[in-house]
Amino acid sequence: MARYTGPVCRLCRREGIKLYLKGERCYTDKCAIARRPYAPGQHGQERRKLSEYGIRLREKQKARRIYGIMERQFRRYFEKAEKEKGVTGENLLRLLERRLDNVVYRLGFASSRAEARQLVRHGHFTVNGRKVDIPSYLVEPGDEIAVREKSKESPKFQELAAQAAHRTPPAWLEVDAANLRGRVLALPTRDQIDVPIQEHLIVELYSK
């Protein structure tokens, strides 16, 4: 699956907010948007008024960049969300939150979604005891996500276990940091998804 490989700090500056794409660095003074709080490029410091279409487009791009997925895959998620019962925008965010790489990040087993994606791709995680190396795998309530036994002894995962012990996962997840294991308690509700996205704007964009 294709992915963005350019400078990620540029994406935060383009959207005008921290997207927390580089993990711990985003919380330090080295964060690019803290030092240069304007859009990248030659005309980045110029003030431009966005059109209605531009506002909706920026919201969609923001969602794509937060979850690290490309346009074609994002469109497929939207089409799936439309077919499900309930509010389309909330269905869309719920699908994105259920991605395995996002769940690994939410559990505290990675410092960013990009790192979580890489760890999943390298086969470090199991779902219900079976190795899963597909970042877009959608978890279900009751699923248990765990670090593989062979990976637990590595210094990287020992460090992540210590970090996870100090992080609080969202209410729809349960984590056992000491054993590098987590469980999906339920599907997330909108108030449990703390991403700065106005999903109704994305629905309006695709409904045109």
Score class of each variant (00 low, 15 high):
residue 29 D to V: 05
residue 30 K to S: 10
residue 30 K to V: 12
residue 31 C to W: 04
residue 32 A to N: 03
residue 32 A to I: 13
residue 34 A to Y: 15
residue 36 R to L: 13
residue 37 P to L: 03
residue 38 Y to Q: 04
residue 39 A to M: 10
residue 40 P to E: 00
residue 40 P to N: 06
residue 40 P to C: 09
residue 43 H to Q: 12
residue 43 H to G: 07
residue 44 G to N: 07
residue 45 Q to M: 12
residue 46 E to N: 10
residue 49 K to N: 15
residue 50 L to T: 03
residue 50 L to F: 12
residue 51 S to L: 05
residue 51 S to F: 12
residue 51 S to R: 13
residue 51 S to T: 15
residue 53 Y to I: 00
residue 53 Y to R: 03
residue 56 R to Q: 15
residue 56 R to A: 12
residue 57 L to S: 10
residue 57 L to F: 12
residue 57 L to Y: 14
residue 57 L to P: 10
residue 58 R to V: 09
residue 58 R to D: 12
residue 59 E to K: 12
residue 60 K to P: 07
residue 60 K to C: 08
residue 60 K to E: 04
residue 61 Q to N: 06
residue 61 Q to T: 10
residue 62 K to C: 02
residue 63 A to N: 03
residue 64 R to L: 03
residue 64 R to F: 05
residue 65 R to V: 11
residue 66 I to G: 03
residue 66 I to N: 05
residue 66 I to L: 07
residue 67 Y to I: 01
residue 67 Y to V: 00
residue 67 Y to A: 05
residue 68 G to N: 03
residue 69 I to L: 15
residue 71 E to A: 06
residue 71 E to G: 09
residue 71 E to V: 05
residue 71 E to H: 02
residue 72 R to I: 02
residue 72 R to Q: 08
residue 72 R to V: 11
residue 73 Q to P: 02
residue 73 Q to V: 04
residue 75 R to P: 00
residue 76 R to H: 11
residue 77 Y to N: 13
residue 77 Y to T: 09
residue 77 Y to K: 04
residue 78 F to Y: 14
residue 78 F to D: 01
residue 78 F to K: 02
residue 79 E to S: 14
residue 79 E to G: 00
residue 79 E to D: 13
residue 80 K to Q: 15
residue 80 K to C: 13
residue 83 K to S: 15
residue 84 E to H: 09
residue 86 G to R: 10
residue 86 G to W: 08
residue 87 V to H: 15
residue 87 V to F: 09
residue 87 V to P: 07
residue 88 T to Y: 04
residue 88 T to M: 08
residue 89 G to C: 10
residue 89 G to P: 07
residue 91 N to V: 04
residue 91 N to K: 13
residue 92 L to K: 09
residue 92 L to E: 11
residue 94 R to N: 06
